[in-house]
């Protein structure tokens, strides 16, 4: 019990004194996950919108698959991206293994299903009169899709925040693709995993608190935007 309490105290000390090692890892975590979320959203929202407003056979099946992939195991994504970017893989020449860029790719792949799926749900929630009105007002296909995304922006933002949460909190793909190299690919989750196994509980707790705070801040920001 004492160990935990002293861990907490040390953790608070590390955070309050802005320990350089802790800050560096936190910033890297945020940057990598933010990048993958933004790239993911840029890919997923247009795809989600197109799927929602196109009619084709197998649409329901496709949406089911996408929803199943919400629970995609992070280590599977790690394995898949590893095969893709390791030396022998098709993208091996880009030398992305054990780089932050490689981690961004892995996290993007990981959260794409959630982003696409929740975009579809958000757009499906729109009133049909809204859709009719857009068509009636003479929107082109592109104008139509842009308008519906704009109308569903808060629901889509919530999806993006959820995606960010999954990206920043996952450890499997980060460790397989990033390799947890100090000062290069070490992020909050991989660091917690390592420090805990080495018995540095205080550092782990500090990093854990930071991880939670990031999630909290992001959600508060979203709430502020949605209530505006």
């Amino acid at each position: 019990m004492n160990e935990i309490i002293s861990g907490f105290l040390t953790a608070l000390h590390l955070i309050i004194t802005l320990d350089p090692g802790v800050i560096e890892i936190s910033i890297r975590s945020i940057l990598i996950s933010l990048s993958s979320t933004l790239i993911g959203a840029l890919i997923a929202v247009p795809i989600g919108a197109t799927i929602t407003f196109s009619e084709f056979t197998g649409k329901r099946f496709l949406v089911n698959i996408i929803q199943t992939l919400y629970a995609l195991p992070t280590v599977l994504v790690g394995l898949f991206v590893f095969l893709l970017i390791s030396r022998a893989g098709p993208l091996g020449f880009m030398r992305l293994l054990f780089t932050p860029e490689g981690m961004v790719i892995a996290q993007t792949v990981l959260i794409l299903p959630i982003l696409v799926g929740l975009t579809i749900s958000a757009l499906k929630g729109l009133d049909t009169t809204i859709l009719d009105t857009l068509r009636s007002l003479g929107a082109t296909k592109i104008q139509f899709l842009r308008s519906v995304v704009k109308e569903a922006r808060y629901a889509i933002m919530a999806a993006v925040v959820l995606g960010f949460g999954r990206a920043i909190s996952e450890v499997g793909a980060a460790i397989m693709i990033g390799g947890n190299i100090r000062g290069h690919t070490r992020v909050l989750t991989t660091a917690i995993s390592l420090e805990t196994s080495m018995g540095n509980l205080a550092v782990s707790i500090a990093l854990g608190i930071i991880l939670l705070m990031i999630a909290l801040v992001i959600n508060l920001l979203l709430a502020v935007v949605q209530n505006r």
Binding site: T129, I130, D132, L134, L137, G138, T140, K150, E151, Y154
Partner: peptide, 24 residues
């Protein structure tokens, strides 16, 4: 131009709502 039984109002300002067709 068509007006529907249930008015479709976009989650934006009145100005943006009225301007929509002209934007297109």
């Amino acid at each position: 131009g068509m007006v529907f039984q249930k008015p479709a109002i976009f989650n934006q300002s009145v100005y943006e709502n009225v301007a929509l067709g002209l934007r297109f």
